[in-house]
């Protein structure tokens, strides 16, 4: 039994029960199933594993998943920053409603977003028909995947930047202005550097979500092998073909990638949280 250095803490009961239950439940739901996946992948033959995760079709899906997620995250970086800025700094009628609606992608089930976006961007849809006229194919192309990932990722960027902008002292900007800096210079030299770490974190969060996203993408992507097939879909395809080993191999690659991304994001967040405090 662990003894606490301070007597005060011992006053409150329930440490053993609450920590015990926490570890038990965490182990049962999260740790054991994840460990089982790595265990299962260890049964795979190494050359077979490499052949699966490095096959041309799987490589094409990585390129697509990473490329579309990165493009969508960068678009969200620009518009998410602008959205956060407008919501924090300007007042306009309906601001609170717009603010609440930014969370829609968190609340709306991904499958619903997926079929709605497909309808809008198909050749007969509201956006699709005029995009077709200028020669752009939106639905059933990588562009469609990017559009779905912009929808899914937007709140990550806005909600990461917003609190930092709110905390930002307006006096700092006044000081810069009173020392003769132009408004443009104040924003680029004073405001932007303070918000930058949060912006990068938001973009990274949107990117990480995009790489694993499934529901909103499968409908709009068209799922053509080598062209519009994302990595999570390939896992499902392998599973439906009873290729459990193949599905496991790709899943392990995705798990390692998401853990690395999680680690990077935590480091980023620790970095700017430290600076804010």
């Amino acid at each position: 039994m662990f003894r606490f250095p301070s007597c005060r803490r011992k006053v409150i009961p329930g440490f053993g029960l609450s920590l015990g239950f926490t570890l038990f439940y965490l182990g049962l739901i999260v740790i054991i199933p994840l460990a089982a996946t790595f265990l299962k992948s260890a049964e795979l033959d190494w050359s077979e594993f490499r052949a699966t995760v490095g096959s041309p079709r799987v490589m094409a899906s990585y390129r697509l998943s990473f490329g579309a997620s990165l493009a969508a995250a960068l678009v969200n970086g620009v518009f998410g920053f602008l959205t956060a800025w407008v919501l924090v700094r300007y007042s306009f009628p309906g601001r609170r409603i717009v603010d609440a609606l930014v969370d829609l992608p968190f609340a709306l089930p991904t499958a619903v977003a997926g079929i709605a976006l497909t309808t809008i961007y198909a050749e007969t849809g509201w956006m699709g028909q005029w995009m077709k006229e200028v020669g752009i194919k939106a639905a059933f192309s990588p562009l469609g995947i990017m559009i779905a990932l912009i929808f899914v990722g937007l709140p990550f960027v806005v909600r990461t930047i917003q609190p930092v902008l709110e905390d930002l002292d307006a006096e700092l900007e006044e000081v810069a202005a009173s020392l003769g800096a132009s408004r443009f210079k104040t924003i680029t030299k004073v405001v932007f550097p303070s918000v930058f770490p949060a912006l990068i974190t938001g973009i990274a969060l949107a990117f990480a979500r995009g790489v694993g996203e499934y529901g909103s993408v499968v409908f709009i992507s068209g799922n053509m092998p080598m062209k519009t097939e994302i990595t999570p879909l390939l896992i499902i395809t392998k599973l439906e073909q009873y290729d459990t080993a193949g599905a496991t191999a790709i899943a392990v690659v995705m798990l390692v990638i998401s853990f690395v991304l999680l680690l990077l994001i935590n480091l980023l967040q620790a970095g700017y949280a430290g600076r804010r405090a």
């Binding site: 965490l26 740790i31 199933p33 990480a208 694993g212 999570p232 496991t248 998401s258 999680l262």
Partner: peptide, 21 residues
């Protein structure tokens, strides 16, 4: 950090881990 782990995992992989178990 471990409690946050499921947020980092792709939904498809979240389902797959139970199939593998």
């Amino acid at each position: 950090s471990l409690i946050d782990l499921p947020f980092a995992v792709s939904p498809v992989v979240s389902g797959l881990v139970y199939v593998l178990l």
